[in-house]
Nucleic acid binder design. Structure first.
Length: 318
RNA sequence: GCCUGGGUAGCUCAGUCGGUAGAGCAGUAGACUGAAAAUCUACGUGUCGGUGGUUCAAUUCCGCCCCUAGGCA
């Protein structure tokens, strides 16, 4: 049985993924599956740059607005729902087009990653958190070394977040994280065409500056206030999103607004860089370079042609 | 005009009781299996404002000059 065809459009924030994906969906009869850890949440529209419903050109979008910003969400949940969405789209005879910048989510969808049965447990987490505060990162890492030596070797002692996760899994006697690890990238579940949309650094950074400016002009501050008003805790996972945590600092702690906006721009640049690092190791990825031609606007004309050519060559389309 | 702080890495600053200097942030590269827009790792030569002097040796002490913040006029 042949693997189902699926297209991935990845890339750093503000690179123009969403528009490109929409163009593609129109051309080949596709539906969009968002791979974005923040667009998941309802009520977080401006700061996550969701394509407004009015601009979706009648193309169905999946994995957007599927979670409550007051509750935690996880890759594992994403994996389950996104795969269901793929099946649904395929059953309609359409092509799934995965678009987004969260590399881990894309991987979770595409590859046979096994997140195990151990759910993130707030109680255990809090317990280790306390342990960390009292005894330090070294001791925490030592605990892990005792029950799951291999994970301990893999993880840097300062990466306490991962160390705590490994401890959670290990102490539930599931064999530990290390036993479920495989070289997942070797075996995609789909016949996929994986694209990374790329542009010259300076141009990308300029687009980011501009996008943040536009978000502020469109009422990002009001959006954050509304979320806080609706009972989203400032420490909630959703509030760790870029733009949200910085504006919380302004609203709750009186940080200067212009300083916060600059911080958002800077951290978004940092983020874009990390995204590129992540995608670089995706062996299957085909890089599409856009821009640098002077027009900051549309990546679409030239890049879109390239995209279609490749899809033809892979006989995704006839 | 006078007085007092400052002028050191792209930015904020530490430091050298005289032996040519180092943190944070930024930046770059990397990692990443239920928090991933998160979390973590590695990478630090710059006329130490200019110019004279003292000294074996000055970014460090002294003189003058320039710039800057504040105070007094």
């Amino acid at each position: 049985m042949a693997k189902p065809k699926l297209v991935v459009i990845a890339g750093p924030t503000a690179s123009g993924k969403s528009d490109l994906a929409l163009d593609l969906c129109e051309a080949i009869g596709g539906e969009i599956i968002s791979a974005d850890s923040m667009q998941i949440y309802r009520g977080m529209d401006i700061g996550t740059a969701k394509t407004p419903p009015g601009d979706r050109r009648g193309i169905p979008h999946h994995m957007i607005d599927v979670a409550d910003p007051r509750c935690p969400f996880s890759v594992a949940m994403y994996q389950t729902s996104a795969r269901a969405a793929v099946c649904e789209i395929l059953s309609r005879g359409k092509t799934p087009v995965v678009a987004g910048g969260t590399g881990l989510y894309i991987d979770a969808l595409l590859y046979p990653m096994d997140f195990g049965r151990v759910t993130g447990d707030p109680t255990a987490r809090a317990r280790w958190e306390t342990y960390l505060a009292e005894k330090g990162a070294g001791a925490l890492h030592g605990e892990l070394a005792r029950i799951d030596a291999e994970s301990a070797r893999r993880l840097h002692a300062n990466d306490t977040r991962r160390v705590i996760r490994a401890l959670e899994v290990a102490e539930r006697g599931d064999g530990g994280l290390s036993e479920t690890r495989i070289d997942y990238r070797a075996a995609s579940l789909y016949n996929c065409a994986y694209f990374v949309l790329d542009r010259p650094r300076e141009e990308l950074y300029a687009l980011i500056r501009e996008r943040v400016r536009r978000m502020m002009a469109s009422g990002l501050l009001t959006e954050v206030q509304a979320l806080l008003g609706a009972g989203v805790a400032p420490g909630a996972q959703s509030m760790q999103g870029l733009g949200y945590k910085e504006l919380c600092a302004h609203i709750l702690h009186g940080e200067r607004l212009d300083a916060c906006v600059e911080l958002i721009q800077q951290r978004t640049r940092n983020y874009a860089k990390r995204q590129l690092t992540y995608f670089r190791r995706e062996n299957a990825a085909m890089w599409l370079s856009a821009g640098s031609s002077g027009d900051t606007q549309a990546a679409s004309p030239p890049v879109f042609e390239k995209l279609l050519t490749i899809l033809h060559a892979k006989s995704f389309i006839s």
